[in-house]
């Protein structure tokens, strides 16, 4: 028997889940709570559930934080996010905070049952739409750490002129920009290449071959 705890503040949704699971003999809904506080109370004071279905929008807290807290208390319980939100940033954060699955509320019955079984076996389960979002994000993920920063148009020009030995003021005159703007670009570049003065910036850039 798989024991389930539902954390969701919509009575309709709880009713829907009950309908989907009622004919499956191996599931038992232990409790349905509406707030983060009630959820924590249940987790600390009752025998542990096997599965938690967790909504991300809750009246007193958000699911990301609650997931982290529950995970800190109980390392073994399987947490499945059950939500309307389908945004890559939220999905990845949820998994990072210790969730084992991510389901959208617009799921079909089979999907919920499959998810519970998969997660119980120890896998991570993402619903089809959520999976697509995450893959899309991976495809476009720019600049993994350690890669060379990309220069903006103006940064390139300013670097070139710094190379030629011009001062910020002279560069501003040459490019018809205000001193202040040139200085901001220069400061940004120092931060991008993690250096503290113009000379080390030029050295860093030369070493990385960012400019020809």
């Amino acid at each position: 028997m798989i024991k389930i705890l539902i954390i969701d503040d919509h009575p309709l949704v709880i009713d829907g889940i009950q309908t989907m699971l009622k004919d499956e003999g191996c599931f038992h809904i232990e409790a349905a709570v509406k707030t983060g506080a009630d959820a924590l109370d249940f987790v600390t004071n009752h025998p542990p559930a096997d599965i938690i279905l967790l909504d991300i929008n809750l009246p007193d807290t958000d699911g990301l934080r609650l997931c982290e807290t529950i995970r800190a208390i109980n390392k073994t319980v399987k947490i499945i996010a059950l939500t309307h939100i389908n945004e890559a940033g939220i999905i990845t954060q949820m998994i990072k905070k210790g969730a084992n699955g991510y389901l959208l509320k617009s799921m079909e019955r089979e999907e919920l049952i499959e998810a519970i079984h998969k997660v119980t076996e120890g896998s991570i389960y993402l619903s089809k739409a959520a999976n697509e979002k995450v893959i899309q994000q991976l495809q476009h993920l720019d600049l993994p750490t350690g890669q060379v920063p990309v220069l903006t148009l103006r940064e390139k020009e300013i670097l070139q002129l710094l190379y030629e030995g011009l001062t910020s003021q002279e560069i501003a005159g040459r490019l018809f920009l205000s001193n202040y703007t040139v200085d901001t670009h220069r400061k940004n570049m120092l931060q991008k290449f993690n250096v503290h003065n113009t000379q080390s910036l030029l050295n860093a850039v030369r070493k990385l071959g960012v400019i020809d």
Binding site: H10, L12, V13, D15, G16, I17, T19, M20, H84, L104, K105, S106, M107, E108, R109
Partner: peptide, 10 residues
């Protein structure tokens, strides 16, 4: 949103 998803569940 909740109404739609519950309709789908049922």
């Amino acid at each position: 949103g909740s109404v739609f998803s519950t309709v789908k569940m049922h």
